[in-house]
Write a protein that binds this DNA or RNA. Structure first.
Lengths: 347, 347
DNA sequence: TGCAGAATTGCAAACGTTTTAAATTTTTGC
DNA sequence: GCAAAAATTTAAAACGTTTGCAATTCTGCA
């Protein structure tokens, strides 16, 4: 019934050769006679020989896998980039014959524990970590172990170097501010989250820097903060901002989901976007194109980033470069219809 | 620098016990004295011992992994369910201590070759296959090998039994028709794809069956077909349908992306949804909630399905049940604002 | 033909675990 | 206090591969 798997031993005996020779022949060693190499390759192909991963990993110490720990959030929360990110990683890995292992961290489980398990069980040759927190124990752990990894995102400041790829959110937020300023806006709103993620600081700092660069004392910035996954609190915070006696004319949101909430609540409050209120997001999620009037946002090309992360990690694994690899990717503005000139009169 | 990994041998010698005893103690064998088991567990915890996956897999023949082959499509096409699906699989697997292997099939690469590699290299104890085609060589291969698998989707008819979980698209399409019929619609449009995927037939058949059940000769059905990933052709086909002298009053789309195209083109053509045209989709993608006026669709709860698939597969791996496991999940209608009563007068 | 040296092939150990069968220690019953 | 039984522990083989080193075969040349 269930077809057995061909092993090196079987292949060897069917060819009248030793296991060693067959192994070397398949690996393409020059020391094996060309004729033998061809004969072995032919037989292996015909027998459908596929080397056993476990055996190979055991002896070589290399698994050919790259690990990613997937945290499970609430029952209805799916990381909106997961699909893109994984597709990109897969693309980057397959070019080098590597595959991805996805270890899930249950909701109540520390992500670090799962990461440790992946690393120390020898399942992976390197790992990717995402969503870097202000104080990130994963980073510290991996560094302590000297285990190959690439971070998607950066620490704010660190006393050690590591491999990372990040989206230049600071630049994007500066660009957003400049564009809105040039459209006449002076009163800005920022909708952000309360979690200690570094990308939040980087983006906010980019905005602050752009404001400072203008040196215009008439610029004003209101900030609305809510926990990332608390939709109710988010809506409340947004409404507090929109319904203030003197509301901003332009709102920049930390990411699209927040921007979409602003658009919904603005429309619910009878405000017209972008006539009464300009809104700019970040991420370019699919819904941002569909939500009327079309959200102006930044595209970070997650898939491409993930692909590069895979490349970087494979380089780190293979070459262990002395200098850490770092890449800062500039997101591109996706201008849609949610931004426009500042309204003349105030309500 | 790079911390070494503790092995069973080290743990054993530090405890003054044999490898065998330590192995058994950690596995919780009753034959090992309770006191010894506790002592070993304590030492293992303290040393941070994690068993080597490769070694364990090699000897036991079980890897603790479940495989999924991820086909890479065009540069900008990401499977819209991938994130949800993987999250669900992860959730289902983690409960049993299993993890997921994601093998990517490059664009030009046969998915079957990658699947074979995953199966025959012993990387996985079972696999999940999705997007079942009318004639699916993966299914045939896995069955021939007797390798544990669960299919997400079904063959239309098969002379053999296998494990599957499917969304009851036939039922949903029947429900959509009935609802629209009761709203007075008699002239229907179906927007579908040309690829030989079984879900297409199942849904279309469900629609046909519902139409037949009514036995109303005045019911008319127009069909627009386009290749799944050819956006241009899709738009053309939709417009041909919408701009026909006698267009349908209600359109059912094979899935949301097609429905969204219909909504866009309808609005471009100056049609008001749902006043002039009712539209119903399938999948409940995120954008369907945002695209005005809000798409009525069916939610197949991919994440939950994936979770069940994981459970099923783990059962299959562990118990090799004689009878195949099958589950038909009924999707739930998500009524939004894109459907309504049939218009009185015709254009 | 014989021999050095190059070319080719093979033996055996190792990777870290599980598991069978056997050895050792402890307990029990009389 | 001793044999038998029960409880506990261990030695060694096995999983399928890679690889250092040794063995064998071949080639060219005297």
């Amino acid at each position: 019934m269930s077809a057995r798997v061909t092993t090196l031993k079987e292949l060897a005996s069917s060819l009248g050769l030793s296991i060693t020779t067959v192994s070397r022949a398949l690996a393409g060693h020059q020391q094996i006679a060309l004729k033998t190499r061809e004969r072995v390759a032919q037989a292996a192909r015909q027998a459908g020989y596929v080397p056993n991963t476990a055996a190979r990993t055991l002896v070589s110490g290399r698994s050919g896998f790259v690990g990613l720990v997937l945290p499970i959030r609430g029952p209805n929360l799916v990381d909106s980039f997961l699909g893109e990110f994984i597709t990109g990683l897969g693309e980057g890995l397959v070019a080098h014959g590597a595959d991805l292992i996805l270890a899930t961290a249950a909701q109540d489980q520390a992500e670090l524990a799962v990461l440790r398990h992946v690393v120390e069980s020898g399942r992976a040759d390197g790992v990717v970590i995402t969503r870097i927190a202000e104080v990130d124990e994963r980073l510290a752990y991996l560094r302590r172990r000297g285990f190959p990894f690439v971070a998607h995102g950066r620490l704010l400041d660190s006393d050690f170097a590591y491999n990372w790829l990040d989206t230049d959110g600071a630049h994007a937020f500066g660009e957003a501010f400049d564009m809105l300023y040039d459209l006449g806006h002076r009163h800005f709103g920022l909708v952000t989250i309360s979690e200690p993620m570094t990308f939040r600081h980087l983006r906010q700092d980019g905005l602050a820097a752009a404001i400072a660069r203008r040196g215009d004392p008439s610029v004003r910035l209101d900030v609305a903060t809510a926990p990332r996954f608390d939709r109710g609190a988010r809506i409340q915070a947004v409404n507090r901002m929109l319904q203030a006696p003197n509301r901003p004319t332009a709102v920049i949101a930390l990411f699209d989901e927040l921007a979409l909430t602003v658009m919904e609540e603005a429309s619910r409050a009878g405000l017209s976007v972008p006539r009464d209120l300009s809104i700019i997001g970040f991420d370019n999620v699919v819904a941002s194109a569909y939500a009327p009037p079309g959200l102006t946002t930044f595209d970070a090309s997650i898939r491409q980033c993930a692909r590069e992360i895979a490349d970087m990690l494979l380089t780190v694994i293979a070459d262990r470069p002395a200098e850490p690899l770092t890449r800062l990717i500039r997101p591109t503005l996706v201008p849609r219809a949610s931004h426009g000139p500042a309204p003349r009169a105030r309500n």
